[in-house]
Amino acid sequence: MRWFLRRLLFYVFALWVAVSLNFLLPRLMPGDPVGGVLAHLSPAQIQSNPGIVQTYRDLLGGGKGSLGSEYVKYLGHVATFDFGISTSNYPSKVTEVIGRTLPYSIALVGVAFLLAFVLGIAIGMVAAWRRGGIVDNFVVPAMMSLGAFPAFFTSLVAVYFLGLKAGWFPIQHAYDSAVTPGFNWTFISSAVRHAELPVLIIMFVYAGGWVLNMRTVMINTIAEDYVAMAHAKGLSDTRVMTRYAGRNAILPPLNGFAAQFATAVGGLVFIEFVFSYPGAGLTLQQAALGADYPLTQALLLVFAVTVIVANFIMDIANFVLDPRVRTG
């Protein structure tokens, strides 16, 4: 329980850091962010939204108050999820834009990343179990090269060959333009169909890291006495590999989940850009290009919170899987 509280405290701290960094960034930058934002709104638009200039000042700086009082105002906006209007999606509010785009990204990266984890762990385990075998010599280098390649290049190649030339996958957007989003079968099947290729790409790009990690730890685990003991008991090879060596070897790679997930969330920006996939990543890129700072500020916060939440979930998984954590 004490362990749990300590982790919780760390995440609260991490959240505070993310919020504060988002406060400081626009204030540290040269130039006038609020002016840049307002340049994208017409005078009539500013007129019809009283208080919008003040909201932007509170969020991005340029107000007259001291840094401390601005920080308090900023925290107030964050706590009430009030990030003003997104200039590139006028008249939508920032929160509306995020609510519209984030579900696509979460579904995409959530599914793909779990698949990458399972695939990578399985391949790494088998590769270490049969050192110098076919999986170790051919599948591992292949996965590692895929992982080392820039994700956006892999996506472009896949879009061209698998999507355009072979015609196996749709290559643009999240669903057919003829379909209206809603909770019905036509939309869901169309959305799943459009997510197939991006999910496959994320899976193969990020499985490489797990393969390497798992293989290295597993090689060390196999040399442990309890594995020899399990063999001596006459247990089947598969059982020793999965229940004895594998189960123990999985813990250190699991600790790397945090960093890997953060990388995958970053990679999402590229993949969504290639596929014109209307998720949070593409929205972030468009907003950054279009000087829609209220939106980029809120999105960066969303990305950070996503990573923090994923970390927390992994901690709980670790808690369940590793008895040492529970007692220690």
Partner: peptide, 24 residues
Amino acid sequence: NFVTNVFLVIPTIPLLVVVSGYLK
């Protein structure tokens, strides 16, 4: 330690995208 911990929770690419967006 503090600075390195910050980068544990904030994904690098989105951070760089946002910072580049701020730069004129």
